[in-house]
Design a protein around this nucleic acid. Structure first.
Length: 263
DNA sequence: ATGACATTAGCATAATGA
């Protein structure tokens, strides 16, 4: 069967439950992976999603921060989570899809302001987290999809100005190096950039602070879809849904989508 | 060229985002 999978940093699932509902109705992905749900699992409005046919969920949450959820209209077999960096935070959750492909939903730490692991513990956490993703990925076997807010824009055209972003957390060389190492270690392919030329500017996040986010268009591609081990993306199926940044009370991220043959 | 904004917890303001 063919299934479409979307990833979206929603910046509070409770505040934006009707935005998620509108997305499910209009785009109708088979599976939606959310990050920054900022909600305990039992407070996620799962009934609202079930009303729309999305009756399956695998989620982890904490009060106020982080939080990841996989909501689906096709069955999910929960696969638990990895506790990256041993912090017990809600930054990863996994589930198996029909046909056997494992789906991993990540929220990588933002990393704070200063790109220095010795003086900024948040940056150290981010680098350690991505290094653990590499170790974890090395041990994987079988087909898998990894999605989420990875909080790193690896390519030159994943940011509005490569030159001006080199010292800004999310595009520093040390982060990009760690990101590429994690991607390669797991044998992951960048599904989105296989479909949309790396020569083309492509963003999934725009700051709330800009006076006019669309006019300035100073975005970053922080949200990713990766596949490995024979998980087969449908060529040309990738989309980054920029219009969702322009709605009333938007998230600062937009959904990223791809379709897969689940076998 | 950085913006000076959004969200949560909890009830003022601090922490966090990136």
């Amino acid at each position: 069967m063919r299934a479409t999978i979307a990833t979206w940093n929603i910046n509070s699932v409770r505040l934006r439950v009707e935005l998620v509902a509108a997305f499910l109705e209009q785009e109708a992905p088979d599976v939606l992976c959310l990050q920054e749900t900022k909600s305990p699992v039992d407070k996620i409005p799962a009934e609202r999603f079930a009303e729309l046919g999305y009756s399956h969920m695998a989620a982890r949450g904490e009060k106020g921060y982080n939080g990841v959820a996989i909501i689906s209209r096709i069955p999910l077999e929960p696969l638990g989570h990895e506790d990256f960096c041993g912090k017990g935070d809600a930054r990863h959750v996994a589930a198996r899809l029909p046909g056997g492909v494992a789906l991993h939903n990540f929220y990588v730490p933002a990393g704070g302001d200063e790109a220095n692991r010795d003086t900024n513990p948040k940056f150290a956490h981010k680098l350690d987290f991505v290094a653990e993703m590499a170790d974890w990925g090395r041990g994987l076997d079988g087909p898998a999809i990894a999605v989420g807010d990875l909080n790193i824009a690896p390519l030159e055209h994943d940011v509005w100005s490569h030159r001006q972003m080199l010292k800004v957390v999310s595009h520093t060389p040390v982060e990009v190096e760690a990101f590429e190492a994690a991607r390669a270690a797991g044998g992951w392919g960048d599904v989105t950039r296989a479909d949309i030329s790396p020569e083309e500017k492509l963003y999934s996040w725009w700051s709330y602070r800009a006076k006019d986010w669309a006019l300035a268009d100073r975005g970053r591609r922080l949200d990713h879809i990766w596949a490995r081990g024979g998980a087969a993306a449908v060529p040309g199926s990738s989309r980054v849904l920029k219009p969702w940044r322009g709605v009333e009370k938007p998230s600062d991220h937009v959904p990223v989508i791809a379709a897969f043959e689940l076998g």
